[in-house]
Write a protein that binds this DNA or RNA. Structure first.
Length: 286
DNA sequence: CACCATGTTCCTTG
DNA sequence: CCAAGGAACATGGT
């Protein structure tokens, strides 16, 4: 359930809760999720380790720990939520959810990695981080850097935005949202964007991500996903909505509804086997 | 049964 | 070597 903003909000939530806690027991219920380490190596490495910090890189969570033992050697634990992952603390007495690939027992409470589809990862292998492009909200990500990344690609811009080596953290939802806000057709070949379009896209990528983080930091969230409800991500209006939550997404999932800008019906198309939503009038090619 | 789903990686083809 | 397309991974909702 994560694109960059959701991971960022989760990281901010978990960081103070984990700091200083010690892993007393490691439970791996899905060995594949901790690969390439074996269950034995993974468990032995984390056993007795203490949480020191937590940061985010793209859609990845990076847990900093000190190993147990004399050296207190620093080690990194890298998490990815896949499509349906969540991470949260629960009382040790609470029953485990049906799909919990990894549980770290911290004494009175459990750190639970729940993931219905098991696409997520919690691993000692940080190699995936090396392939990531710039952080979109960091100073190193400029319109020029974005333009450089797009210049030689013939790939449709929407597909290119999902390439984590171009810019880290944009996923299927915010790719559609950023292109809509920038008024750019999702099918435009990346190298065909004008300088103005690149600048606009750069601005809107940052804007849409920053707004989502802001929204997620403001609204009350349910990280443990109580009642089977997904209230954590994309912060759409709550099902039992007080209209406290404004609908934030402007095109994603709105096929057949009126464009918020011009009233034209929003369309859905498929690119690289994923849905793209767009306004055919606001996002013309030409 | 059909189709859809917030992601990444691997394999094949050109 | 690269780009592009598709399948695989696995489960659940509608």
């Amino acid at each position: 359930m994560p694109e960059l903003p959701e991971v960022e909000v989760l990281v901010r939530h978990l960081r103070p809760l984990l700091k200083g806690k010690r892993i007393q027991e490691v439970q791996v219920h899905r060995p594949k999720v901790v690969a390439p380490a074996s269950v034995r190596v993974f468990s032995r490495t984390l056993q007795g380790a203490e949480f020191r910090g937590l940061s985010r890189r793209g859609k990845y969570l990076v847990f900093a720990l000190n190993a147990s033992g004399r050296t207190r050697k620093p080690l990194s634990l890298v998490g990815h939520l896949g499509m349906t992952g969540r991470m949260y603390l629960a009382p040790a007495s609470a029953p485990l959810p049906r799909h919990a690939p990894v549980v770290l027992c911290l004494g009175g409470e459990n750190f639970i990695f729940e993931d219905t589809r098991y696409f997520g990862r919690l691993t000692l292998d940080g190699s995936a981080l090396e392939r990531l492009g710039p952080e979109p909200l960091a100073a190193g990500f400029s319109a020029e850097v974005l333009g450089q990344g797009l210049r030689r690609s013939t790939q449709a811009i929407k597909i290119k935005l999902l390439d984590q080596s171009l810019v880290a953290g944009v996923g299927n939802i915010y790719a559609s949202e950023a292109l809509f806000r920038a008024g750019i057709s999702p099918t435009l070949p990346s190298r065909r964007l004008t300088t103005r379009q690149v600048e606009g896209l750069w601005r809107e990528i940052r804007q849409v991500l920053a707004e989502a983080i802001e929204c997620g930091s403001t609204v009350p969230l349910n990280f443990a996903g109580l009642h089977g409800r997904d209230r954590l991500f994309y912060y759409g209006r709550a099902p039992e909505a007080e209209d406290y939550y404004e609908e934030r997404l402007r095109v994603y999932g709105r096929a057949g509804q009126a464009c918020v800008e011009c009233g034209t019906l929003i369309k859905r198309m498929v690119q690289a086997a994923r849905s793209t939503y767009y306004c055919p009038r606001c996002q013309r090619r030409s």
